[in-house]
């Protein structure tokens, strides 16, 4: 995927993935890989909007669906080389907010608003029955200064109230308990 003439290049190119889990099925690496598919890739602002305008918004997805927007070359999996020492910030949202906040997060990531160098790997929106969950993945779970900056930027771009609970979970812990959240 390449930026074409006249388009506005992004700092990174990205892949958008979609997954849907059969409710009740415990996550495992093999069925996760089978259930995830690439929706498209883009390298410019224009290519992003073309893709984004043609896909369903999170609020129109059925439960147990996820969008994963990751830098090109990084699989949205805990085991990926870029992710395996990393973790993610998790924000749980009441129903009805996910589409708007997901868009805010995506625009902040594409526009390089996090200011943490190469640290950001990707972002995920998870549509569930009673709540929706937004998360942003970074490379180095052990770097506290980076993590605080990611958290503060997330809070700002999502315009979250100061009392919002934000959890950080390392992918090592996710692998141990086979659970994303």
């Amino acid at each position: 995927v390449k930026c074409k003439q006249g388009e506005h290049q992004l700092q990174y190119s990205y892949c958008l993935w979609f997954s849907r889990r059969t409710p009740g099925n415990k996550a495992s690496s093999s069925n996760y890989e089978q259930n995830i598919k690439i929706m498209g890739a883009f390298a410019s602002v224009e290519q992003f909007w073309t893709l984004y305008s043609h896909i369903a918004r999170p609020c129109d997805l059925t439960s147990s669906s996820d969008y994963h927007l990751f830098k090109h070359g990084i699989k949205p999996m805990w085991e990926d080389e870029a992710n395996k020492k990393g973790g993610k910030w998790i924000v749980r949202l009441r129903k009805g907010l996910a589409s708007r906040l997901w868009e805010n997060l995506v625009l902040a990531m594409l526009g390089e608003q996090f200011m943490v160098g190469e640290e950001i790997c990707g972002a995920v929106v998870s549509v569930r029955f009673a709540e929706d969950i937004i998360s942003i993945w970074n490379r180095t779970a052990s770097d506290n200064a980076i993590n605080i900056r990611v958290r503060d930027t997330l809070q700002r771009v999502l315009n979250l109230p100061p009392n919002t609970i934000m959890e950080y979970k390392t992918h090592t812990d996710s692998l141990k308990d086979r659970s994303s959240f």
Partner: peptide, 21 residues
């Protein structure tokens, strides 16, 4: 090196560009 930074308003405006359709 230099990074390509876009603010939210710029990105939202780009949505209506002919190349974004």
């Amino acid at each position: 090196g230099t990074r390509i930074i876009y603010d939210r308003h710029f990105l939202l405006n780009m949505r209506n560009s002919p190349l974004s359709q």
